[in-house]
Nucleic acid binder design. Structure first.
Lengths: 228, 228
DNA sequence: CGCCTGCGCTGCACTGAGTGCCATCAGACC
DNA sequence: GGTCTGATGGCACTCAGTGCAGCGCAGGCG
């Protein structure tokens, strides 16, 4: 497609062809470069490790996410913002459904690739958590809330993403992720309460409690409002 | 100390001595076995990889956790139960504060060890999520909720654990983890609402809403109750 | 007592990932 | 044409991890 680096694409194509027909571990880097017709040294110029060739676009996506989080959006609800950031990842997967499904099957079978994927996901989660830490700075349990919410967002996103990948990319990935993130948002959005005089008067609440824990109260609210 | 396997302990001791004095990557397996006075092949008999020697007890701890989750507790609140399971991990760390702090410093510096730790943590998280999936079977969004809650529990636990490790194991790890898990429990416990006729009447709620989203209502409840 | 057998340890040779170094070659630029 | 630069290829090396064969040492058995 492009002029400069057909090298990268050629290596990815050769790698996946071999991975699919004889498996990841049964394929050596020498096999890949032989099929691609390039020198072995060039492989490691483009991919720091054999695992990296399986995730050729995550580096760019992670850069996109940090860029997204570091530009503007200071007025938005923080949880909403990290949910939108997570949707960037979904978009990357959805751009190449066939490729994503193939990769998913590979990572499911090969423990080494699963471990590598974990470190990739971890970097996304750290980016989200760092952003939330900034937004929650000074609040009580700010970093704790940031870490928990980031983990919840990633888990929800991955749950929906994986269920879509498991169905061979047939269903509506966006809807599934929206639903999953909606649950997280309903759980966490709002977060720490702003000062009294900045609160909009959109809610009036009267509560009578008889020694119930907070979660029981919340549960009752949800039921009263007919939500899940 | 013990009769049968001083080997394992000798290898761990030799490994950490070298890791601390010249770094993980600057230490080869040959260095370790030379210091321990054993054959190179024996190292890989006890530890499938060089990274494993850094986490010598996680395998046992993971087995403890799955055993804990698979025996009884069917009457307990599911979220409470996975929180208790997470406390098992904390206990393991707290048993050897000095060792845990040393290991923490290592894993922070060495990317390869961080990646390995992620795969360990992932197995804990999977164990918790699988348990919750079982408990939530049949409920709406059961697996999604299970995954999200498991991720939140792990994130909260790790947040508290790491802050304790960062302070050289000086503070009260148990209290910190209890507080962190308490926040998760307050957020998630109760989970899907049980049928109406099984609900205890410990809460009476009157809500008047004027187009507010759920999170605003919850926020107001929290403020009304004077909680965070 | 001597032998056998199984088990744990060792040494050795081998594969394959990843790295450092230098030669080479193409195109840009003067 | 000459030169400079950046991308590539080749080569040799380190080191993690594995398969295999031998070796020593226990305990069981005749």
């Amino acid at each position: 497609m492009s002029a400069k680096p057909p090298m990268r694409e050629a290596l990815v194509a050769a790698a996946f062809q071999l991975f699919l027909e004889r498996g990841y571990e049964q394929t050596t880097v020498d096999d890949i470069v032989a099929l691609a017709g390039v020198g072995r040294r060039s492989f490691f110029r483009y991919f720091p490790s054999k695992e990296d060739v399986v995730f050729p676009d995550h580096e760019r996506c992670l850069a996109d996410m940090t860029a997204f989080l570091s530009t503007g959006g200071e007025d938005d609800e923080p949880v909403e913002r990290v949910c939108d950031a997570a949707r960037l990842v979904l978009r990357m997967y959805a751009e190449n459904p066939a490729f994503s499904v193939q990769r998913y099957r590979l990572t499911r079978k090969v423990p080494g690739l699963r471990a590598y994927e974990l470190s990739v996901v971890w970097r996304y989660e750290r980016a989200l958590a760092e952003y939330l830490r900034g937004r929650f700075a000074g609040r009580r349990d700010g970093t704790l809330r940031a870490d928990v919410i980031a983990a919840a967002v990633v888990a929800a996103h991955n749950n929906a993403l994986r269920s879509w990948l498991r169905s061979d990319g047939k269903g509506d990935a966006t809807a599934a992720v929206d639903h999953a993130l909606g649950l997280v948002q309903a759980t966490f959005a709002g977060g720490p309460t702003p000062p009294v005089d900045e609160r909009p008067e959109d809610v009036v609440v009267v509560v009578s409690r008889r020694g119930a824990p907070l979660w029981r109260v919340v549960q009752e609210i949800e039921t009263t409002l007919g939500r899940d």
